[in-house]
Lab assay of single mutants.
Amino acid sequence: NRRVIAMPSVRKYAREKGVDIRLVQGTGKNGRVLKEDIDAWLAG
C-alpha cells in the first residue's frame, strides 16, 4: 500500500475524472503522478 506522490490539484483532477490515482503510474520526479499521467491513463 504505497503512498502516492501527487500535487493536490492533480488529485482533484483525478477525482473529477473518476480515476483511482493509486492505479496510475507516475512519470514525474520520484514517481510523482502528473496531470499528463492521468490523461494517459484515461486514453488507455
Rank of each mutant, 00 (worst) to 15 (best):
Asp39Glu: 07
Lys17Arg: 12
Arg15Ile: 13
Asp37Ala: 01
Arg2His: 15
Leu23Ser: 10
Thr27Asp: 02
Gly44Ile: 14
Tyr13Lys: 06
Lys17Tyr: 07
Arg3Pro: 14
Leu23Arg: 12
Ala14Arg: 00
Lys12Ile: 08
Val24Trp: 02
Leu42Arg: 06
Lys17Cys: 07
Asn1Ile: 15
Val10His: 02
Asp37His: 02
Lys17Trp: 08
Leu34Glu: 10
Ile5Glu: 09
Trp41Tyr: 15
Glu16Thr: 12
Lys29His: 11
Ile21His: 02
Trp41Thr: 05
Val24Phe: 03
Gln25Asn: 13
Val24Asn: 00
Gly28His: 03
Pro8Lys: 15
Gln25Cys: 10
Arg32Thr: 09
Arg22Gln: 10
Ile21Trp: 06
Ala14His: 00
Asp37Glu: 01
Gly18Cys: 10
Arg32Val: 08
Leu42His: 05
Leu34Asp: 06
Trp41Ile: 07
Glu36Pro: 09
Ala14Val: 01
Tyr13Trp: 03
Ile21Thr: 03
Asn30Ser: 10
Val19Thr: 03
Val19Ala: 05
Ala6Asn: 04
Pro8Asn: 11
Asp39Leu: 06
Lys17Thr: 07
Leu23Asn: 10
Ala40Ser: 13
Ala40Asp: 12
Val4Thr: 08
Glu16His: 10
Lys35Gln: 08
Lys35Arg: 14
Arg3Gln: 14
Gly26Tyr: 02
Ile38Val: 13
Ser9Tyr: 09
Ala40Gly: 09
Leu42Met: 10
Arg22Pro: 02
Ala6Ile: 07
Arg2Tyr: 04
Leu42Cys: 07
Glu36Asp: 11
Val4Met: 06
Asp20Gly: 03
Asp39Ser: 04
Arg3His: 13
Ser9His: 12
Gly28Met: 02
Ala43Trp: 09
Val19Asn: 00
Trp41Arg: 04
Val10Trp: 02
Gly18Pro: 00
Asp20Arg: 05
Leu34Ile: 12
Gly31Met: 06
Ala40Arg: 15
Lys12Phe: 08
Val33Lys: 03
Gly18Met: 08
Asp39Arg: 04
Gly44Lys: 15
Thr27Gln: 05
Arg11Cys: 08
Arg2Met: 11
Pro8Ser: 11
Asp39Phe: 04
Val10Arg: 01
Pro8Ile: 11
Gln25Glu: 13
Asn1Phe: 01
Glu16Gln: 13
Gly28Val: 02
Asp39His: 04
Lys29Cys: 09
Gly18Leu: 08
Val19Asp: 00
Val19Cys: 07
Arg2Ala: 09
Arg2Cys: 09
Gln25Met: 14
Ala43Leu: 12
Tyr13Arg: 06
Thr27Arg: 07
Lys17Gly: 04
Ala43Asn: 12
Lys29Trp: 08
Leu34Ala: 05
Val10Gly: 02
Gly31Gln: 08
Gly28Glu: 03
Gly31Thr: 04
Lys29Glu: 11
Ile38Arg: 00
Ala40Met: 12
Arg22Thr: 12
Glu36Ser: 15
Gly31Pro: 02
Pro8Gln: 10
Arg15Val: 13
Val4Gln: 08
Val4Lys: 09
Arg2Phe: 06
Arg32Trp: 09
Gly28Phe: 02
Ala6Ser: 06
Ser9Trp: 08
Val19Gln: 01
Asp37Leu: 00
Lys35Gly: 04
Val10Met: 04
Val10Asn: 03
Arg11Lys: 11
Trp41Pro: 01
Ile5Tyr: 04
Arg2Ile: 13
Arg3Asn: 13
Trp41Asn: 03
Trp41Ser: 04
Asp37Val: 00
Pro8Val: 10
Asn30Leu: 11
Lys29Phe: 12
Arg11Thr: 05
Arg15His: 14
Arg3Val: 14
Ala43Phe: 09
Lys17Gln: 13
Arg22Ile: 07
Tyr13Met: 04
Ile38Gln: 00
Ser9Gln: 10
Val24Tyr: 01
